[in-house]
Every structure is written in C-alpha cells, then in structure tokens.
C-alpha cells in the first residue's frame, strides 16, 4: 500500500513537472499572443492538479493541509479561465488581431468582428456595469 502510494505520487510529480516545462516551451515557441494563452492553459489545467495530487498522496496521513491543498487546486482551476478571458479581452480591445494561417472565412469573420467592435465601442461593454 505504502509503495503504491509512493509510486503514484512520484509519477504525479514527474508528469506534472514535464507538463510545466511543456507549457514554458509552448509559451516560447508559439507565434502570437492568443496561441500562447493555449500553451499557458496546459500548465494551469493539468500540471497544477497533478502536482497537488502528488503532494496529497505523499503526505503521511490526511490532515487539514490536504483540504487546504484541495482548495488551492479548486481556486486555481476556477480563476484561471477568468484570468485568461480578461487577458484576451484586454488584448482584443488593445487592437491585437489573432494570427491565422488559412485566409478565408475566418479572416473575413475577424474583419467583420473588429469593425463591429469598433462601432459598438461607444455603446458600452457587457462586462463593465
């Protein structure tokens, strides 16, 4: 039982660490801001739960610390999408346009959306009451 738990927590740490580095590499390799957000998402949605599960499994017994660690996991998982959404929304308002390789419908849609956005700029914004 003990060796099984040790093995499980060790593999959680290894995979979690690998995923962290993957996110960092993706952050460096991807071509523009919007794709980099996807890379950052990898580290925050899977690496965080794995590392925290590793710590919980590595503890000698369940205690208050385990519950606090679970809360950290829930907070990171709940706040991460909100933070990325705030960032991409700010980038869009700042005039950044996503890089797309295939020109076509997507490009047209993007142009239409940016023009729509500019026209509705004065009309106010949903997220700001």
């Amino acid at each position: 039982m003990d060796t099984l738990l040790n093995f499980l927590s060790a593999s959680c740490f290894l995979i979690g660490g690998f995923l962290c580095i993957t996110g960092g590499v993706g952050l460096l390799r991807f071509p523009d801001f919007f794709t980099r957000v996807h890379a950052a998402g990898v580290t925050e949605t899977l690496a965080t739960p794995l590392l925290i599960t590793g710590i919980i499994l590595n503890q000698p017994d369940l205690s208050l610390d385990s519950i606090k660690l679970l809360m950290i996991m829930l907070i990171v998982l709940a706040t991460n999408p909100t933070a990325s959404h705030a960032m991409t929304k700010a980038a869009l308002h700042g005039g950044l346009v996503p890089f797309t390789r295939s020109k076509g419908d997507a490009e047209k849609e993007a142009k239409k959306q940016t023009s729509q956005k500019n026209s509705s700029e004065t009309g106010g914004d949903i997220s700001t009451p």
């Binding site: 962290c20 996110g23 801001f33 950052a40 925050e44 690496a47 590392l51 700042g94």
Partner: peptide, 22 residues
C-alpha cells in the same frame, strides 16, 4: 506586446504557488 508580458507574469505567479506548495 504588454499582453505577452502579462501572460508570462501570470504564469510565473501560478508557478510560484506550486513552488511554495511543493
């Protein structure tokens, strides 16, 4: 852009949480 820097800073913050825990 400033947004790239902020994304990286946010990631450093999340990693700091993990670093404190681990």
């Amino acid at each position: 852009t400033a947004y790239d820097r902020m994304l990286a800073t946010n990631m450093v913050g999340t990693k700091a949480v993990l670093l404190i825990a681990v």
